[in-house]
Design a protein around this nucleic acid. Structure first.
Length: 198
DNA sequence: TCATTAAAGTTAT
DNA sequence: ATAACTTTAATGA
């Protein structure tokens, strides 16, 4: 968790409920709030000129949404929209900065979160720069698998649809599906009930 | 080889 | 039922 929930409540954070499809913020909006997911999933995305979606990231419980933008005077570079029923803590930017000044020390959690974000961007850029679809998909799966303890093969059930995996790696769905099939044959992953085990 | 288009089958709401 | 997702196949860059 980025910031302790009770600490957030103590400085005036409120819980907001969101339904699937609801928008938290849109590309170009001015960042005015700190958001932290209690429950549910949120995706950060962009749309290309031709309308093709690129998913920057899919976030879950405990993660902040767009918090890195609170420190600079720039509009949001992505949209944030809700994938599943969500409970999200919302705190005004002012209160967020008051929290930063407090001696309780939220800085470690926040720094860790920002660091993780930079690391994620680095890994994804590295892998997504590869012309080989399997490399991109493996990069994606390896990163998300790294958060679970169990490192043994096929112990990680990929929590994304093929569509989402394609949008996260800049591939078209069909290519992603084909590459996944090939990887199954090569015993890199298993498919059980359409779920990918990596 | 990958993207695109089309078409059809499957799952979820 | 309808929308969203998955899969296969054909075509072209």
């Amino acid at each position: 968790m980025v910031i302790d929930e009770n600490l957030l409540y103590s400085v005036g954070a409120e819980v907001k409920h969101y339904q699937p499809g609801e928008i938290i913020f849109t590309e170009g909006d001015t960042p005015l709030y700190y958001f932290q997911i209690i429950e549910g999933n949120v995706k950060l995305n962009n749309y290309s000129e031709e309308g093709k979606e690129f998913i920057q990231n899919i976030l879950g419980p405990g993660q902040g949404v767009g918090e890195s933008l609170l420190f600079i005077e720039k509009p949001y570079p992505t949209n944030a929209l809700v994938l599943t029923d969500c409970r999200i803590l919302k705190l005004s930017k002012n209160a967020f900065f008051i929290l930063l000044e407090m001696p309780n020390g939220i800085s470690m959690g926040l720094n860790r979160s920002l660091s993780e974000h930079v690391y994620y961007q680095c890994i994804m850029l590295r892998n997504n720069s590869s012309p080989n679809p399997a490399v991109r998909l493996k990069g994606l799966m390896s990163y998300f698998k790294s958060f679970q303890q169990n490192e043994s093969p096929f112990s990680f059930q990929v929590p994304f649809t093929r569509q989402q995996m394609a949008s996260l790696t800049g591939l078209c769905v069909e290519t992603a599906i084909r590459a996944i099939k090939v990887m199954e044959k090569e015993n890199v992953l298993k498919i059980k009930d359409r779920k990918i085990l990596y």
